[in-house]
Structure formats: C-alpha cells, structure tokens
Design a protein around this nucleic acid. Structure first.
Lengths: 150, 150
DNA sequence: ATTATTGGTTTAATAATGCAACCGATCCCA
DNA sequence: TGGGATCGGTTGCATTATTAAACCAATAAT
C-alpha cells in the first residue's frame, strides 16, 4: 500500500478540510471537545477508541492547530486538550452534521440531543444564503474551478 | 480488531451522521457528486480510489439513501449514481467544510475553487443563527442531553 | 465483427486499527 | 511520608481495511 493519497494539494477547500479532519475519529473527538471534554481519559472513555490511536489523533489535531495542549485550569502539572480558535471554526461543520442527522437518521419519535442557543434555549438554525439573503440549495449554485491546477 | 464500533445507537445526531458518511472516502464521493460526477469511472478517476473500495462505498451510499442508481439520461442500459434528496441535504456539510478549508487551509494568495450563486455569480454564505436572527458561535450554545439513554 | 470501454471482482501485499499488557509520573489518602 | 490508584500514554501482536494489479463479462463504438 502506498501511503494514502493526501489531498493537501487539492484546489478544493472541502477536500483539504477532509484531509485534515476526514478520518473516522477526528471529528468525533472534535465533537466531544465542543461538548466540553478536555482530558485524554475523557475522550478515551467517551469514544471507546484505542489509546494508541487516540494518542495519534490528538497529536495530529494539535499539530493541525485544531486543538492545543494547555495546563489544566485546576493547577497541577497535567495538561488538557482545548479547541483553538481554528478548532472552533469547525462549529458549522458540526452543526451541519447534526442537522443532517436529525433530519434523516432518527425515527420520528426518537429522542436526540439538541443544540440550543444558551440565552433563549431555542434550537439554532443553519442557513446557506446568497449575497442578497436568499436561502439557496445545491441546485442554485455552481463550483467555479480554478483555471489551471497541475 | 472487533468490528468498528457503530454509532447507530448514539443519541447525538452528529455521531449518527458520521456513522454514515464519516469514513475517509464517502464525503469525497459526495463532493464529486455535488460537482456533477455520476459514473463509476468518473469517481474512480477523480479520486484515485481503489476500484473495489469505490464499489463498496458506492453500495453503502446507495443503501444509506444518499445516492441512487438510475439509468443514464443518454439512454443505453448503463447506470449512473445520483444524489437523492437526502444526499442533497448534505449540502450544508459540504459548504461548511469548504468554508473551513478556505479560511484555514490555503495560503493567502493561493487559488481555490469557489462555490457561487448561479444567478449572481457571488460566493455563498453560511450562517448559524438563533431564532431571533442573531449569528451565534459555539460559546453561545449548549448541547442539551436527552435525559436517559442506555 | 472486432476492439475498446465500463464496471466491476479477485488476489495478494501492505497499512491502519484494535486490544491487552505494561510503564513512569502524578495524585489521593491515611 | 508511604502506598495504592489514576492518568496519559507506549509497545507488541492480532485483526481489518485499503491498495494495486490482474482479470473478466457485458456493453458500446468503429
């Protein structure tokens, strides 16, 4: 097996994102981070991931700039993993995945966790809009390709 | 290796989404589908994926209801893979990934493909809002857990 | 009628992942 | 201060997943 193809050079921003967080575990770790988890053991317990794999994924997420390793707030010498500003920019990705799951992957009466506005307690909404404010879907858009990529 | 843990029973909609499209290739296939590709050979050429893996992923995406296999528009007996309505609902996920990539994974002057409104030619925007229309970020939200999941 | 293309399947090798055992450093507690 | 438990890993080995390459039947093109 030659090394798995890297998408680093791809001109498509989605592909580059997937190159960084597109593997099986990374987005689940990020989800847990948004959910407030910070410690190695917390992620390990929450996800049931093998510890060596978790080690490697956390390292990759840190070196990608999505997580950072900072001293725990409770003093002591131990460290915790926290979302960076860049990591928090994955919020729309998480919300979009959540929205898709809510819409298609739950039975009508089935309960699920809910993302709500902290102040109002109401669910958040995600919209894709044109410049003029119209909501638009995939059929109203096109992807402009850059003229020459090698 | 015991079979990879399924997140089907997870009460978190994001986790269920990742259970369906969270592997390495599926979202890249979906991206290509949004980009207009429909044929086995087109995906294979575009992604450089091994053919047996592509076969399996396409099968999974079809059985998940994200793609469907329909007769080609040009007549003939061959089939093509098309996004279903459910598949098109992954649009916000793709846009969110794109936006993240644009913001963090390209050098300032580096060119990338661009998703634009078909009628105006202007880039699309993605916003997460509270009910009252305010844009909100991760720190203004909380995830309500369902009271009891086993 | 012949050849090329499409859409796969099969096989064997390699890489990724998981599990369990281990380990040093810290933390908790008496 | 000592002793055990916990944390955050590392290491080795077994199992799965992915790959590349060869092969193949059915269709399409010439």
């Amino acid at each position: 097996m030659v090394a798995r193809k890297s998408l680093k050079g791809d001109y498509c921003p989605s592909a580059r994102s997937l190159d960084v967080i597109g593997d099986w575990w990374s987005l689940l770790i990020v989800r847990d981070a948004f959910d407030g988890l910070t410690r190695f053991g917390e992620f390990q317990k929450s996800l049931g991931i093998a510890k060596n794999i978790l080690t490697e994924r956390l390292r990759t997420l840190v070196s990608s700039g999505i997580l950072e390793l900072v001293p725990t707030s409770e003093g002591g010498t131990r460290m915790e993993y926290r979302l960076t500003a860049m990591g928090k920019d994955l919020f729309p990705v998480m919300v979009a995945l959540r929205q898709f799951g809510e819409r298609h992957l739950f039975a009508p009466a089935e309960e699920h966790s809910l993302l709500v506005d902290r102040t109002s307690g109401q669910p958040v909404r995600l919209d894709i809009k044109a410049q003029d404010g119209r909501s638009i879907g995939p059929d109203e858009t096109i992807i402009l390709k850059v003229p020459e990529e090698e």
